[in-house]
Write a protein that binds this DNA or RNA. Structure first.
Length: 885
RNA sequence: GGGCGUUUAGCUCAGCUGGGAGAGCGCUACCCUUACAAGGUAGAUGUCGGCGGUUCGAUCCCGUCAACGCCCACCA
């Protein structure tokens, strides 16, 4: 056997195994256990502009754990990777590039040429993030890889659009939308971020026509007065009642507008008078609709003022605001200016201040789909984990608004709506160059706009499996793999993506697209701050992998993932788990020389040593628990269960206890011990594989039998009913307690741990006495004692000795050679005090008749047992103290 | 303004249906003991945010207050 290095070096190992797995087709859907249903996950497709960050690392670790776990359990598993064209983000990036390199705008190039550039860019850079995913160990089936602009998804987009268009659920309408003046496109409500801004409240005088009266109106956007088409007051406001029905004159423009009453107006806010600008304010638009007010658009597409605002035409809104205020002041119609903080909508994509604008756009009426998407969650056809997140989902889906799906961009799925050049008929078609369905005219013009990116990603669960092409669906196994089992993602796209997939998936198939949605935490820095370039606190997963290995990173992320919302990632923590990975490596280094002849995994339960029974029993519990925890998405508990077992049970006790056996001359005992060590280690490595795939595959090569293949496709450990040994576990717990107590005693009185001293055990439990007697050799070895004398409690106790009392047992170290008695006496006194307190606490319960009356029997019994234990312990301590008086 | 979440050891967090407070890291002491110093052994540390209630019994349930965080809605 080759030399094994002292520390585990992940470099080289990781890439090597990933390549082997991929080449051998380990990630392909294969059912090794035909009785089990397939297990499918759809990967949230990263943006084509994306770069791997810790969020991906977490998201993918979770998905890969589930996929590897289910694969090992024998399920036919499929993890589908994909990529999103990310309309706005990508277009912006390429626009910047072309401008930097060629000094040209997209308009200079024209639509076709520009799109060629985008495709070229996608080919060059689009794959970067996917290669980075391989570094994470993602065991997805790359043959299923789908890009949202591929032919498949494009066909899905067209089919869905045309069907809904023909049902009348997709319609074109003038409506007030959020306009991004930088991107010069509509954006959806959800793409608007509200940020607090320092603004001003401008109080302006509006004259009332044919009267000396003026109305004082407060606004934060005085430049919009050019778009005013009414002044509104509350119908119950006595102050202005007499003015309703009259006209007001807009300052600067001189236009006359009606003074109307509308309940939206809050009498308490501002002056109680509202200027109504239906073209550029969401609420005003609603008022405008109710009162049939005209709409005046005062903005150009780039956000500058148009000729409806002649005095400020061509200026940006910011400049126009300044100029308007100046003009009002000159006209003596500006009353006062106040400071005012308010929320201003910004475009999530460009950062520009969003301008509400009325514009002709395409919408989907989602009312019915949203209702169904709510009931599907209420009936748990789709379950959120943790459950609390369904509130976020409901908050959107219970108040659906029309989804604006058109974007004034070039990069994306062009809207499949055509207008006949001859008869003006408008129709939707899946064909690229349809003829007019009404008059058969060959020349038709396609709507130039493209669809919202989420339109195609919302269809991804369908399109990645071939829908709507029947042949492709068969080829990709649509019937077997739809719906998928779980969607793993962050909370930020519950509405953007989860809700859309739910609506679209159910609309097409009448089935939810996935059964669970596991919402994982957000990765932050160790102080809980968001990782950002400007704060300089970003941890780059690729660098982290290079420094500490992928397995350590994955373990850290997994052990931090349960039902929590945040993960505060501390480098010290990662280092700790790196050490754990190394610990496993070294455990193997120790056992490996003994394994050469331990080729057989069969273990005859009847012949087992009690230590072997103990470790097998503990391992069995771990297997059971870990399996359950993975199924519950409790990666934190699953991982720490394995961690505790490997560290505390297997390494600290079982390996330590085995050293003597392995160095002895008893060949049959040695062989059996090697078998058990090997068996357990094989189980450990399998248990860990979903979390730490690389090191486990590397170690597996030394552990596998000749007829066994890679660990990726080995069977996951299962609970073994033959490996339940409760009494051996209880005895071992006692043994550990005694050894620890002896070490503790030595430590307390400053006896070197190495120094072998005499020890006497007293117990009133016959079974324990027997067990200790059998274990005296191990006691000697692990506690470093000379002789272990075991006696009945009733007889002879050493007069002068240090003592520690545990349940049913007293341990004495005779005093000869002991250095510091006072320290020990102090400790005894502290023990006494503590034990007294504990005793009083339970004793009080027992003396409380109400407790005795109301508490369930098993609790009372437990408390009674505790009380007698404390009492016994107390007596021992007091006895011992007396010896020193 | 509406909603949600958090508050437990120095730090980061676990604690399932109420029944004697836990882990990791850090810290202290002693150890280079032949798998591992990325190690070993032992140890210390908590009015479980405040107040009130329900209960025989509350970290857990209810009410209330406080601090922090997030989301949504209002650009008058």
């Amino acid at each position: 056997m080759q030399e094994i290095s002292k520390t585990y070096d992940p470099n080289g190992v990781e890439d090597k195994w990933y390549k082997v797995w991929e080449e051998k087709g380990c990630f392909k859907p294969v059912a090794r256990d035909k009785t089990k249903p397939p297990y499918v996950i759809l990967m949230p497709p990263p943006n084509v502009t994306g770069k791997l960050h810790m969020g991906h690392a977490l998201d993918h670790t979770v998905q890969d754990i589930l996929i590897r776990f289910k694969r090992m359990q024998g399920h036919e598993t499929l993890w589908i990777p994909g990529q999103d064209h990310a309309g706005i983000a990508t277009q912006a990036k390429v626009e910047q590039k072309i401008f930097a390199e060629q000094g040209k705008s997209k308009h200079d190039l024209g639509r076709d040429k520009f799109l060629e550039e985008v495709w070229a860019w996608k080919e060059e850079y689009g794959g970067h993030i996917l290669n980075q995913f391989k570094k994470l160990g993602d065991s997805c089936d790359w043959d299923y890889f789908t890009f949202t602009m591929d032919d498949g998804p494009s066909a899905a987009v067209k089919r869905f659009f045309v069907d809904l268009f023909n049902e009348g659920l997709i319609y074109q309408s003038d409506y007030i939308i959020n306009w991004d003046p930088v991107l010069q496109s509509a954006i959806s409500d959800a793409e608007v971020e509200h940020k607090e801004a320092q603004g001003k409240f401008y109080h302006i005088h509006y004259r009332v026509k044919d009267s000396n009266q003026v109305l004082e109106i407060a606004t934060t956007r005085p430049e919009t007065l050019f778009g005013d088409t009414a002044v509104a007051v509350n119908p119950n406001d006595d102050r202005f009642e007499h003015l309703i029905g009259k006209s007001a004159i807009i300052p600067l423009s001189g236009r006359e507008v009606p003074i109307i009453a509308d309940p939206h107006v809050d009498m308490e806010v501002g002056t109680g008078c509202l200027k109504v600008t239906p073209g550029h304010d969401f609420n005003d638009y609603e008022i405008g609709k109710r009162c049939e007010l005209p709409i005046i658009n005062i903005l150009n597409k780039d956000g500058t003022l148009n000729d409806n605002a002649p005095q400020v035409e061509g200026l940006s809104t910011k400049e126009a605001r300044k100029k308007t205020v100046q003009l009002l002041e000159e006209a003596n119609q500006l009353v006062k200016v106040e400071d005012h903080t308010h929320q201003v909508g910004h475009s999530q994509r460009s950062g520009a201040v969003v301008e509400p604008m009325v514009s002709k756009q395409w919408f989907i009426n989602t009312d019915e789909m949203a209702k169904r998407s709510v009931s599907d969650v209420e009936t748990e056809a789709m379950k959120f984990v943790p459950k609390g997140w369904e509130n976020t989902y409901f908050s959107y889906q219970k108040n659906p608004r029309p989804w604006c799906i058109s974007r004034q961009l070039w990069w994306g799925h062009q809207i499949p709506v055509f207008t006949c050049n001859s008869c003006d008929h408008q129709f939707a078609s899946e064909e690229e160059t349809p003829v007019c369905v009404k008059c058969n005219h060959k020349e038709v013009t396609q709507d130039p706009d493209v669809l919202d990116t989420w339109f195609s990603s919302g269809l991804f669960p369908l399109s990645t499996l071939g829908w709507p092409n029947p042949e492709k669906m068969k080829e990709k196994g649509f019937d077997r793999f739809y719906p998928s089992n779980v969607l793993v993602t962050g909370f930020d796209i519950i509405f953007f993506w989860v809700a859309r997939m739910m609506m679209m998936g159910v609309k097409v198939t009448d089935k939810v697209p996935f059964n669970d949605t596991y919402i994982h935490a957000i990765v932050r820095d160790k102080d809980g701050k968001k990782m950002s370039k400007s704060l300089g606190n970003v941890i780059d997963p690729l660098e982290l992998i290079k420094e500490t290995g992928c397995d350590a990173m994955r373990f850290t992320l997994a052990v931090s993932s349960g039902y929590n919302r945040n993960i505060n990632l501390d480098p010290a923590k990662i280092e700790g788990y790196r050490n754990f990975v190394n610990k496993i490596w070294n455990a193997f280094r120790f056992i490996s020389p003994y394994l050469e002849n331990a080729t057989d995994e069969a273990i005859d339960v009847a012949d087992l040593h009690h230590h072997e029974k103990w470790i097998l029993s503990e391992l069995n519990d771990v297997v059971k628990s870990v399996t359950e925890k993975f199924d519950d998405y409790r990666f934190d508990e699953a991982c720490s269960t394995i961690y505790q077992f490997v560290y505390e049970k297997y390494c600290s006790w079982f390996i330590e206890l085995s050293k003597g056996v392995l160095n002895s001359n008893n060949e049959s005992l040695k062989a059996q011990r090697a078998n058990v060590l090997r068996y357990c280690f094989r189980q450990i490595v399998k248990l860990l594989h979903p979390v730490t795939p690389f090191i486990t595959e590397e170690l597996w090569q030394f552990l596998k039998r000749e007829d066994e293949d890679l660990i990726v496709i080995q069977e996951y450990p299962k609970f073994n009913t033959e490996h339940v040994f409760n009494s051996d576990v209880q005895n071992m717990e006692k043994f550990i307690e005694i050894v620890t107590s002896i070490r503790n005693l030595k430590n307390t009185v400053n006896i070197s741990p190495k120094e072998e001293i005499e020890v006497r055990l007293f117990t009133d439990d016959e079974g324990l006495a027997k067990y200790f007697y059998q274990s005296r050799g191990f006691l000697k070895e692990l506690a470093k004692v000379k002789a272990g004398k075991i006696k009945d409690k009733s007889i002879e106790r050493p007069a002068k000795s240090v003592m520690k009392a545990t349940t049913h047992t007293e341990i004495f170290l005779p005093l000869d050679g002991v250095i510091d008695i006072n320290v020990f006496v102090e400790k005894l006194k502290r023990d006494k005090e503590k034990t007294e307190k504990e005793f009083q606490k339970v004793d009080k319960k027992l003396k409380n008749p109400k407790f005795m009356e109301n508490a369930p029997d098993d609790i009372v019994e437990k408390v009674r047992a505790e009380a007698s234990e404390f009492e016994e312990k107390l007596k021992s301590i007091e006895n011992s103290l007396e010896n020193f008086q």
